[in-house]
């Protein structure tokens, strides 16, 4: 992969106000999804079914936090600070999908596995859709995240295969799918600047096309495992919640917990722990 941007790409210093707003929306969507997904996944640490599966889910959570950081770092290049991206940002300005903010019921490993699967397939699609982005700083980072995603999908599909192999597991996975599916569709809900994101070439696929690809990927795979995938037109619609900042109570509770220490300790800047040796 080349580090040199394509000649028709846009550097951050050349962004018009409209372009910058569109890039920011795209980056916040990516980053917020990753951050909140990771935050929920860490709930499984120590609680996973076996020691080995605990280690694996922890790694996935770390990867997703790491991806959130890749995208928040790009926002920092545009002038944001970490507190503005995370710690002091109003919870109603977060644009993650409804899928990732859902709390886990105790023991619902089926939710963890299936949510991971639905999310990871969507993430591959959307990372591929920004691989040829016109925004140069983004293009450089996509490969890193995509590499890690391969493990995530392997993890999810291996678990799905095993858990759906017996009747009890199958029933639980079907319940999880029925619960998660409407929220998962909100991954593809547009935000206010969606048209600009595509028009400026920041993303080379429309959300509608990505949604179709996602449905065509997960549908046959889940059906092959004996699961019935709900009809996307017949499930409860998210009505733009999530991507426009309207969230469930679970998100607001989570946000309060996550930011509690930050609000209390009043440090000057959040600590960064980055590479010191090359």
């Amino acid at each position: 992969m080349s580090e040199t941007p394509r000649p028709d790409t846009i550097d951050r210093r050349e962004l018009s106000a409209e372009q910058q707003a569109a890039v920011e929306e795209l980056l916040f969507r990516l980053a917020d999804d990753e951050f909140v997904h990771a935050e929920r996944l860490t709930e499984w640490q120590i609680y996973a079914p076996t020691l080995e599966s605990d280690l694996a889910i922890a790694n996935i959570a770390q990867d997703e936090f790491g991806h959130a950081r890749l995208w928040y770092d790009l926002l920092k290049q545009l002038g944001y600070t970490e507190p503005e991206c995370i710690w002091e940002r109003d919870p109603t300005e977060w644009t993650h999908s409804l899928l990732v903010e859902r709390p886990f019921d105790a023991g619902d490993w089926g939710d963890a596995v299936l949510r991971g699967y639905l999310y990871d397939v969507a993430e591959r699609i959307r990372l591929e859709a920004v691989a040829d982005t016109s925004y140069a700083p983004l293009a450089d980072r996509v490969g890193k995240a995509l590499e890690e995603e391969a493990y995530h999908r392997e993890h999810a599909t291996n678990w799905l295969e095993r858990l759906t192999a017996d009747d009890d597991g199958q029933a639980r996975m079907q319940d999880a799918l029925d619960d998660l599916f409407p929220a998962a569709l909100s991954l593809f809900d547009p935000g206010p600047r969606e048209d600009d994101i595509v028009a400026f070439g920041f993303r080379t696929e429309s959300l509608a096309a990505m949604r179709t690809e996602w449905l065509e990927t997960i549908g046959p795979s889940l059906e092959a495992l004996g699961l019935a995938v709900p009809d996307p037109d017949e499930v409860a619609q998210s009505n733009g919640r999530g991507r426009y900042g309207t969230h469930t109570d679970a998100w607001h509770d989570l946000y309060d917990e996550v930011t509690a220490t930050y609000r209390e300790v009043d440090f000057e800047t959040p600590v960064e722990l980055r590479a010191t040796e090359e």
Partner: peptide, 11 residues
């Protein structure tokens, strides 16, 4: 992990 006051501390 949930209470950490920076993204890198959380990681």
């Amino acid at each position: 992990t949930r209470k950490a006051p920076s993204l890198d501390r959380k990681l």
